[in-house]
Design a binder for these strands. Sequence first.
DNA 1: TGGGGTTAT
DNA 2: ATAACCC
Length: 450
Amino acid sequence: WLLRLGQETAAGVQNTRSTACRVIVHVDLDCFYAQVEMIRNPELRDKPLGVQQKYIVVTCNYEARKLGIKKMMSVKDAKEKCPQLILVNGEDLTPYREMSYKVTELLGEFCPLVERLGFDENFVDITEIVEKRLNQLQQSGCSRVCVSGHVYNHQAINLLDTTHVRLVIGSQIAEEFREAIYARLGLTGCAGVASNKLLSKLVSGTFKPNQQTILLPESCQDLIRSLDHIQKVPGIGYKTTKRLETLGVRNVCDLQAFPSAVLEKELGVSIAQRIQKLSYGEDDSPVTPSGPPQSFSDEDSFKKCSSEVEVKEKIEELLPNLLDRIYKDGRQPHTVRLTIRQFSSTNKWFNRESRQCPIPPHLIQKFGKETSSVLSPMVDILMKLFRKMIDVDQPFHLTLVSVCFSNLKDLPSSKKGSIGFYLKQVSPPSGSAKLLCHWSITQNILMLLC
DNA sequence: TGGGGTTAT
DNA sequence: ATAACCC
């Protein structure tokens, strides 16, 4: 696609600037866990591969998909379908988490506005980069732009429409993102470019592995209405779908046409207005930079755990890994939480309960040092939380134990003379050494030079 | 269904 | 602390 740029004066650009659309990229890695495993062991590259957690194949590579393996298939069904399927255990998320942050950090080199969604998706607000390139193009008198990848619906591009031009420039930037992710990390993925997060996410999935697509505004209704069920709309989950079904709302068109007043009474004004806007493809939520994580957790599920001693053992298994992650992060957690799931034949999922408490100050101090000194006092605290939930004199049957550290705070900076002093000045909320965006780092270095 | 995450109430 | 959402 070679196209001729419309003639537009600088003044014209200024006039349209206040109404310029946002340009959002959604980057979605292909079968992420399987890709990471194939990098760890290249011999798996051309073989059908599944990643297993407990008795579930949580994801698989495209070789396996050709043979009929689906995400979240039971190991039993998968082996029946495909006896040659190779399975690797993916219960320890460490390799995936590490690679995931490398991707986010790489995108952060292009632009500070990067928001994570799970381990394998990122939103990037590239509005400013697009504006800059648009100005460069116009000033250099360049008359052609070329779209990278697909255009949703094969819609024709109109280069007199500045929104079209912005999205085309966005496609070039998305291509650069994917090329950088492949060149530096060896990962492939999809990208979607549109004027908001919702649409960028929906359009990124339209051409699937390792391809990208842009959505022009005129095709927005086609895209959103192509969703056969409302639960496919990101933001409308299981519960809301059930309540909407009660109201007779089955698809996106039903939701668009449904009386707002009735919806607001049924779901509350906030949810009603948000999801009805979503049904029109409208989403004004900003790309919020994720920064370093808000919490660190580790969990294990199992068939049965029914004594205090077993619970303590589970906790002792989970803690060292967690404490190590927190130590490497550099911040100190101020809250700890224990979550359990009790067995029940009815309502099998979502019967989790938790208790949390502040971490005593004397223990918080020790997080910056050796993890061994925190271990046993922390086990004691977690066992107390456990006894708040479960009467240990009565029989119980747990199927999951999870420990979570949250309310992370930066180490108190030792004021002058320390590099921390300069770092804290520019980025007070979360100065975790690792995930500062490079702008903050640049500013910090400039401060040091001053 | 696993092993994580987030925000709103 | 729970409930909803996301992957």
